[in-house]
């Protein structure tokens, strides 16, 4: 009987919980998402990377040291051509670049629970995941020369292991996984 009450109570609890809480996206440490779209001479890129990949922690910046790390990471992320190296023949220039850090959950409410880490987490007790988000608009005078992109990103951010990449060109959409040990995207003969 007590067991039933407990189950009932937990059901009620989840229902109440689901009403005030929305949902959580996928979050895997070491793995970021990146989208690249090319149309004409315009190139649009968007990067979403877990805080753990970029600065090595995901708790709210509590002290000046953390804040400095986040600031310098955002500054690094705002320079796309240093992170993603296009062939010089493509003559790409940055039209717009913005980077920011965003909390994925209601970070201030602290303990939320209910989210699973893909990896053992010995590091955060305060629940919220943070994510770095960057958007870039590039202009490439010679986009057909983009036959490869080198991901210096992995050198800049040693905690990043993998980028899941979606590339959209004239010929359609393709997905790639760029890993730390082979940080180059070959587009020759594909685009």
């Amino acid at each position: 009987m007590i067991g039933r009450i407990a189950i009932f109570a937990s059901l009620v609890a989840t229902q109440v919980y689901s009403q005030e809480h929305r949902e959580l996206g996928a979050h895997e440490h070491g793995v970021g998402q990146m989208d690249i779209a090319i149309e004409g001479t315009r190139l649009w890129m968007e990067l979403h990377a877990p805080g753990a990949d970029i600065v090595g922690f995901e708790h709210a910046a509590g002290n000046a040291d953390d804040r400095a790390k986040i600031d310098s990471a955002v500054a690094l992320l705002a320079r796309p051509l240093d992170l993603f190296v296009f062939p010089s023949a493509a003559e790409c220039t940055v039209v717009e670049a913005k980077a920011e850090i965003e909390a994925e959950t209601h970070e201030e409410s602290g303990e939320e629970g209910g989210h699973d880490h893909d990896e053992a987490d010995a590091h955060d007790d305060d629940g919220g995941h943070t994510e770095f988000h960057a958007e870039y608009a590039l202009d490439c005078a010679n986009p057909s020369a983009i036959d490869r992109i080198a991901f210096a990103y992995f050198e800049t951010f040693p905690n990043a292991r993998e980028l899941e990449l979606q590339v959209l060109t004239e010929t359609g959409a393709q997905a790639f996984e760029i890993e730390r040990n082979a940080p180059v995207l070959e587009l020759a003969g594909r685009s």
């Binding site: 929305r22 996206g25 989208d35 779209a37 090319i38 149309e39 315009r42 649009w44 968007e46 608009a137 979606q166 959209l168 060109t169 004239e170 959409a173």
Partner: peptide, 16 residues
């Protein structure tokens, strides 16, 4: 525009 595909995709995937 092809450049907006990912933006729309993300918007739909995060549609509350």
């Amino acid at each position: 525009s092809r450049l907006q595909v990912f933006k729309l995709q993300r918007w739909i995937n995060e549609y509350p």
